[in-house]
Nucleic acid binder design. Structure first.
Length: 821
RNA sequence: GCCCGAAUGGCGGAACUGGUAGACGCGCCGGACUCAAAAUCCGGUGGUGGUGACACCGUGUGGGUUCGAUUCCCUCUUCGGGCACCA
C-alpha cells in the first residue's frame, strides 16, 4: 500500500523476497519478481481530508517516492510489469469479472449493516469506530441497514477447507486459522413448533443434539422475525431489541459484552417432549450464524449456564460425565464434555454419537429436523460507501432496477479530482459521474456510487503480473507459464482474509476457464510483524490522535515507579498503547531511509535479515546496525588484504596440512549450511552467522604459503558468493576484486566439495545420568564397543561413576554416550 | 470472548528429528595502537560458590512422560496477530 514512505516491514518483506529471488536465479531458475501498488483505500481519503488534496494525487506522489526508495534498496524487480490498482487499466477487470460473477449468481445483492456516524453523516470503517464513537467526530456510532453486493464465498466453503490438506508448503498455523475461520460444524438442525402468529416452526442449529432433553429455554437474535413479532405490543422488549441492534458490529466486542436477554412471553414446543419452552431474545445470539436461534441447555453450555443463572432459568443436567457429580452452584469446565445421557427418557445410557443419531432420526420422523453441516464462514460483502475505490459497474433505473453496465462501456472510470471532506461520499455530489441513461430503457438513471472493497483489488493482482501489458483481456496465455505463484511472501496478518479471498477468487476464475489451477500460491511464507511502541491521546469527545514514538520521551516516575510518556513538542503526557504493528494510521512506522543514507542499502538489508528469523515477530530497535556495518567492512578488508598479495595459485588438494584441511572443511560446511538455510529453511539470520564464523576462522588462518593463499581465496569466494543474495552491491564489487570477469549476479551457485567435508575423527560427548561430563575424540569408523570403552575410560567420567554400578549405556552414534548408574 | 502464535544471558537471537543450552551479533569489561579521541585489532563476558581444577543452579509458571526435555503432553501467566469495512 503506498502509504508515503517505506517502513521496516517493507524492508523485511522485500529483502526476504529479493534474497530468495537472487538465490533461485543463481540456482538456475527463471525468476519473476514483480511489484505493484494496492492503491485504493481509506488512508488516501484520510490524507485527502487532512491535506485537502485529491486522493489520486496523494497516492501517485507516494508511489513515485516509494518506487525511488525501493530502487535505492537494490531490489531486483521487473518494473516493466508494475501494477497500480487505482488506475483504470487495472480496475476495469475488477468490474468485468464482477459482471461475470453477477451472471453466475456468485455476486448478489442483499442488505447489510454498516457503522453510521450521525455527525458526519457518513459510513465508518470498523477501524474508525473507537469505543462505539466516530474517531473524527466522537459521535455515538449507529448501525444502519443498507443494500449491498455480496460474493458467495460460502458456496466454496467445503472446497476451500478440504483443499488445505493438500497444501503442505503452507505454514501449519495459517492452515489451522483458515480451517477454523471456515468453521465446519456437524450437528443437527432442530425445529421447535409454535403457535405464535400464524404458527410455524422455530429452527435452531446445535452440535450437541445429545443434550436436547436439557433444553430449558430458546433464545433468538434481536433481528429474528419472532423477536419483532413479540415486540409488537411490548414496548420494553421493543426497546431491548433496539438496544441490541445498536450494539457493536465487531465480533470481538460482541463476544466480550455482557450477556443480556429478555423474555418474549411466548413459548415454543420441545420437539421431543412437546413441553412448553420459554422463548427469549438474547444479545449473544448471532443472526448470521445458523438460523439466528439457539436452544438453551444451561447444564452443558457455559454461555447458556451464565444466562440461566442471571435470569433464574432452570438448569437440567442430562449428561453424566464419567460419574462426576453435577453442582448447580458454579460452572465447571467439564460440564460441556461428552458423556452418557441421563434424565433423557429413551436416550438414557447412550453416548454422544448414538444419542445424536437417535435424536436426528426421531426429529426427522416428525419432520422437525435432520443432520446438518453449518459453516461459520459468511459471504463477502464488497460494497463500500466510499469514494476512493473501484466503482461497482451498476446503474440504478426507476423502471429497470439495478442494471449492469454493458461490457463495452467498461471501465466505469472513477473521477480523480474530487476532494473528500469526511462527510459522506463525494461521488454523490458529482453529477457528471452520477447522472447516466439506463442501458436497458434509456431513461434517466443514477450510477451506483458504492465502490469495491480493496480486498477485491488484491485478490487477483498476482495473476496480472504475467500479462500487465494486455489491454484486450484480463489474463492471457502467459499466466500458464508463470503461475501459480511459487513463493508468496506476506505478513501473518493476512493469514485469513486476504489469502482466503484470493483462494476463492482463483477458484471462480478456474471455473470460468481463465486459469488452470485452483490454488493461487504454491508456497507461502509468512513473515513476522515488525512492532514498535504506539502512543496516542484521546479527547473528551472521544477523538483519537496518534504520535510518532520518535517524538515521545518515556521516563519512570520516581515516586510511583510508573512509566510516563511525554510528547516533547508540548511537554504533556500521552497514553501508551504498547507494542503494535508499524502502520501509517498509528504513526509509529520507522522509515528505513536514514539507515540507507547513513550506511547504505546492503547494511540495511543485512541488519534486517540478521536481526531475527524472518517468520518471527520483531520488536524494532536499531541497536546492532553498527554490527552489520562493521561486518561488511571486515569482509571488504579481508578481500583487500588477500588480493593485495597478488593472484592466488591453484590448490593442490592432495597435499594439504591438517590445519589447511580444517579450514577447507569449514569453508564447505559453511557453503552447505548457507545453501540449506536459504534454500530450505529460509533462516537468513543463521546463514549470515555461519559466514561470520567462517570469516572469524579465516582471520586466524595463516596466509604464508601458496596453498594457504589458495584456501583463503576459496573461503573468500564462498563468503562473497553466499552473501550476495542479501548484500548484492558490496559482493558484486568484491567478486570482481577476487579476479572474476563475470558479474556475480550471473554466476551459478557454488557446489559443495564432498571430499572437503571428510574428517578422520569426530567429537562426542559423554554424559553420566544425563549430565555432561566429558568430551571424547573418536575415529569416524570406530564401532560401538570402542566408543563405549573410550567413554568409560575417561577419568572425569570415572570420577562420576565412582563405585556405582553401570546400569545402562545409551549410545547415539556420532553424538553422545549416556552412562546410567 | 473465540482462533493462531510466542516467551532462552544486560539486549537481538542459536540449538533444524528428544541428545553438548547460550552459536553469531550488540552492549559491557580489560588490553594493544594513538599526544588524545574515534576507528581498528586482541582477550573476557549466564548466575552462584571457589585462588584454581571444578561444582551446583539455569530456557515465562506449576506439574507430567523419558536414561536424557528449550524441544513432547497438561495447567496457568504475560505478550503479539486475526475476528469479516485498516491493508
Amino acid at each position: 500500500y503506498p502509504s508515503g514512505r517505506l517502513h521496516m516491514g517493507h524492508v523485511r518483506n522485500y529483502t526476504i523476497g529479493d534474497a530468495l529471488a537472487r538465490f533461485m536465479r543463481m540456482n538456475g531458475r527463471n525468476v519473476l519478481q514483480p511489484m505493484g501498488w494496492d492503491a485504493f483505500g481509506l488512508p488516501a481519503e484520510n490524507a485527502a481530508i487532512e491535506n485537502r488534496v485529491p486522493p489520486a494525487k496523494w497516492t501517485l506522489d507516494n508511489i513515485a517516492h516509494m518506487k525511488a526508495q525501493l530502487k535505492s534498496l537494490g531490489y531486483g524487480l521487473d518494473w516493466s510489469r508494475e501494477l497500480t490498482t487505482c488506475l483504470p487499466n487495472y480496475y476495469r477487470w475488477n468490474q468485468w469479472l464482477f459482471l461475470r460473477m453477477l451472471e453466475k449468481g456468485v455476486a448478489y445483492q442483499k442488505t447489510g449493516v454498516v457503522n453510521w456516524d450521525p455527525a458526519d453523516k457518513t459510513v465508518l470503517a470498523n477501524e474508525q469506530v473507537i469505543d462505539g464513537r466516530g474517531w473524527r467526530t466522537g459521535a455515538l456510532v449507529e448501525k444502519r441497514e443498507i443494500p449491498m453486493y455480496y460474493l458467495k464465498i460460502t458456496a466454496y466453503a467445503e472446497d476451500l477447507l478440504d483443499a488445505l490438506n493438500g497444501m503442505p508448503d503452507w505454514p501449519e498455523r495459517v492452515r489451522a486459522m483458515q480451517a477454523n475461520w471456515i468453521g465446519r460444524s456437524e450437528g443437527v438442525r432442530l425445529g421447535f413448533p409454535h403457535k405464535i402468529g400464524e404458527g410455524g416452526v422455530l429452527y435452531a442449529f446445535t452440535t450437541r443434539a445429545d443434550t436436547i432433553m436439557g433444553v430449558t429455554f430458546c433464545a433468538v437474535a434481536a433481528e429474528h422475525p419472532l423477536a419483532a413479532y413479540a415486540a409488537r405490543d411490548n414496548p420494553k422488549l421493543a426497546a431491548f431489541i433496539e438496544e441490541c441492534k445498536r450494539g457493536p458490529a465487531i465480533e470481538a466486542e460482541l463476544a466480550t459484552q455482557e450477556k443480556k436477554g429478555m423474555p418474549t412471553g411466548l413459548v415454543v414446543r420441545h420437539p421431543i417432549s412437546d413441553e412448553p419452552v420459554p422463548l427469549w431474545v438474547g444479545n449473544y445470539v448471532l443472526m448470521s450464524y445458523g438460523d439466528g436461534a439457539v436452544m438453551g441447555v444451561p447444564a452443558h453450555d457455559e454461555r447458556d449456564f451464565e444466562f440461566a443463572k442471571k435470569y433464574g432459568l432452570p438448569i437440567k443436567p442430562v449428561i453424566d460425565v464419567e460419574g462426576r457429580p453435577y453442582s448447580l452452584a458454579a460452572w465447571q469446565p467439564w460440564y460441556s464434555d461428552h458423556g452418557r445421557c441421563v434424565n433423557s427418557g429413551r436416550y438414557d445410557g447412550l453416548d454422544y454419537e448414538r444419542a445424536a443419531n437417535a435424536v436426528a432420526m426421531d426429529l426427522s420422523a416428525k419432520g422437525l429436523g435432520e443432520k446438518r453441516t453449518t459453516w461459520r464462514l459468511r459471504d463477502w460483502g464488497i460494497s463500500r460507501q466510499r469514494y476512493w475505490g473501484c466503482p461497482i459497474p451498476i446503474i440504478h433505473c426507476k423502471s429497470c432496477g439495478a442494471v449492469p453496465v454493458p461490457d463495452e462501456e467498461l471501465p466505469v472510470v472513477l473521477p480523480t479530482d474530487l476532494v473528500p471532506d469526511g462527510s459522506g461520499n463525494p461521488l454523490l455530489k458529482d453529477t457528471a459521474f452520477l447522472n447516466v441513461k439506463c442501458p436497458k430503457c434509456g431513461a434517466d438513471a443514477r450510477r451506483e456510487t458504492d465502490t469495491m472493497d480493496t480486498f477485491v483489488d488484491s485478490s487477483w493482482y498476482f495473476l496480472r503480473f504475467a500479462c500487465a501489458d494486455n489491454d484486450q483481456a484480463m489474463l492471457d496465455y502467459r499466466v500458464q507459464y508463470w503461475l501459480p505463484v511459487d513463493q508468496y511472501i506476506g505478513g501473518i496478518e493476512h493469514a485469513i482474509l486476504h489469502l482466503l479471498y484470493a483462494r476463492f477468487w482463483t477458484r471462480f476464475m478456474n471455473e470460468m476457464g481463465a486459469v488452470s489451477f485452483k490454488e493461487p500460491f504454491a508456497r507461502l511464507f509468512t513473515q513476522g510483524m515488525v512492532l514498535n511502541q504506539m502512543f496516542y491521546r484521546k479527547s473528551n469527545a472521544g477523538r483519537v490522535e496518534y504520535f510518532n514514538p520518535a517524538d515521545v520521551t518515556v521516563t519512570t516516575d520516581k515516586v510511583t515507579q510508573q512509566r510516563v510518556a511525554v510528547l516533547r513538542a508540548d511537554g504533556k503526557e500521552v497514553e501508551s498503547g504498547g507494542l503494535v504493528t508499524m502502520s501509517k494510521s498509528k504513526k509509529n512506522g520507522v522509515d528505513p531511509q536514514e539507515l540507507v543514507d547513513e550506511f547504505g542499502a546492503d547494511t540495511a538489508r543485512l541488519f534486517m535479515m540478521f536481526a531475527a528469523p524472518p517468520e518471527q515477530t520483531l520488536e524494532w530497535s536499531d541497536e546492532g546496525v553498527q554490527g552489520a556495518f562493521r561486518f561488511i567492512k571486515r569482509l571488504w578488508k579481508a578481500v583487500y588484504d588477500h588480493v593485495a598479495q597478488g593472484p592466488a595459485a591453484p590448490l593442490d588438494k592432495a597435499a594439504l596440512t591438517e590445519v589447511q584441511r580444517a579450514m577447507r572443511r569449514q569453508s564447505h560446511q559453511t557453503l552447505a549450511k548457507v545453501t540449506d538455510d536459504i534454500g530450505r529453511r529460509r533462516t537468513f539470520n543463521t546463514a549470515i552467522a555461519a559466514v561470520m564464523e567462517l570469516l572469524n576462522a579465516l582471520a586466524k588462518f595463516p596466509r604464508g604459503s601458496p596453498q594457504d593463499r589458495g584456501i583463503s581465496q576459496e573461503a573468500l569466494e564462498i563468503a562473497v558468493l553466499t552473501l550476495s543474495p542479501i548484500i548484492p552491491h558490496v559482493t558484486h564489487a568484491l567478486w570482481r576484486d577476487l579476479g572474476h570477469r563475470t558479474a556475480l549476479v550471473d554466476e551459478p551457485w557454488l557446489k559443495v566439495d564432498a571430499e572437503a567435508l571428510q574428517s578422520s575423527t569426530l567429537q562426542m560427548v559423554v554424559q553420566v545420568n544425563g549430565k555432561l561430563r566429558a568430551h571424547i575424540s573418536v575415529a569416524v569408523d570406530a564401532d560401538d564397543a570402542v566408543v563405549r570403552a573410550a567413554a568409560l575410560a575417561d577419568p572425569h567420567v570415572q570420577k562420576f561413576i565412582g563405585s556405582s554400578a553401570v546400569r545402562k549405556v545409551i549410545l547415539v552414534p556420532g553424538k553422545l554416550v549416556n552412562i546410567v548408574v
